[in-house]
């Protein structure tokens, strides 16, 4: 989460920001920064995430800067090769709606109107949203929600995957893979009535249950980052 007062925030505005929106992941680039700084900032921002977001589409918000085809190709390669992210759209302030980089199949899109932007522009604890799923996720099913938290009224079966930018709460058995804080928020938690996961991820941390252990607990448990690793304990309120 980005912290600090408004003044400090303005001064230290990050060169790139990664946020979850209704239409997918968005990489917001400081219009003033040089390409070199942008590249460094992307590497820096993604260092925590590895390739955990691989396969997702990405929109780039370039504000009022201009971006040559060459620069865009470069960014596209960087994001694709290292993190498995594919640029879908380039969002920009200008009214010019001609397609950008047609051979890359990247579409140019105008920036959203100011008021829409205001509604959409939130991933902070006060404004985060929560997705409710009222069914069991079965093997092969993937659920991703990058605007906030996921609550599942059912099970997450082995072979199923659930990813959220915030917390993941399973009112059932969690047997598959869960990734909370997927945009890097290591204060996110994973809670399940029956926590028997294949693998747990919070931010950049990954853990799996000890081999061979067959636990059958009927006690809700919470997984959270403690220091440099994920720990699991009985859930007695946060």
């Amino acid at each position: 989460m980005i912290d600090g007062g408004t003044e400090v925030k303005n001064m230290l505005r990050p060169v790139v920001e990664l946020k979850g929106y209704r239409d997918g992941l968005r990489l917001i680039i400081d219009p003033e920064a040089s390409m070199d700084r942008i590249q460094l900032a992307i590497v820096d921002r993604m260092a925590n995430l590895g390739n955990s977001l691989a396969g997702m589409g990405l929109n780039i918000d370039i504000g009022d800067r201009s971006l040559s085809d060459e620069e865009l190709t470069h960014l596209s390669n960087l994001l694709h090769k290292n993190y498995g992210l594919d640029i879908k759209r380039v969002i920009r302030e200008s009214d010019d709606q001609t397609p950008i980089a047609e051979d890359l199949r990247i579409i140019g899109a105008p920036a959203l109107h100011q008021e829409e932007h205001a509604i959409d522009n939130q991933f902070s604890p006060e404004h985060e949203e929560t997705l409710f799923l009222r069914n069991t996720l079965r093997s092969g099913q993937v659920e991703r929600f990058l605007e906030g938290n996921i609550v599942i009224l059912g099970d997450v079966n082995p072979g199923a995957e659930v990813t959220a930018a915030g917390d993941i709460i399973v009112l059932g058995a969690l047997r598959g893979v869960a990734h909370a804080g997927a945009l890097g928020n290591t204060s996110s938690v994973i809670i399940a009535l029956n926590l028997l996961p294949t693998q747990l991820r919070i931010g950049r941390f990954i853990t799996r249950p000890p081999a061979g252990g067959k636990r059958k607990r009927r006690q809700a448990e919470v997984a959270r980052v403690n220091g440099e690793s994920i720990t699991v304990e009985e859930f007695n309120g946060l």
Partner: peptide
């Protein structure tokens, strides 16, 4: 078998 049950689970999701 774990593998058979896993695949059955996938099939149930697809049938749904």
């Amino acid at each position: 078998e774990v593998a058979a049950v896993r695949d059955a689970d996938r099939i149930i999701g697809l049938l749904q």
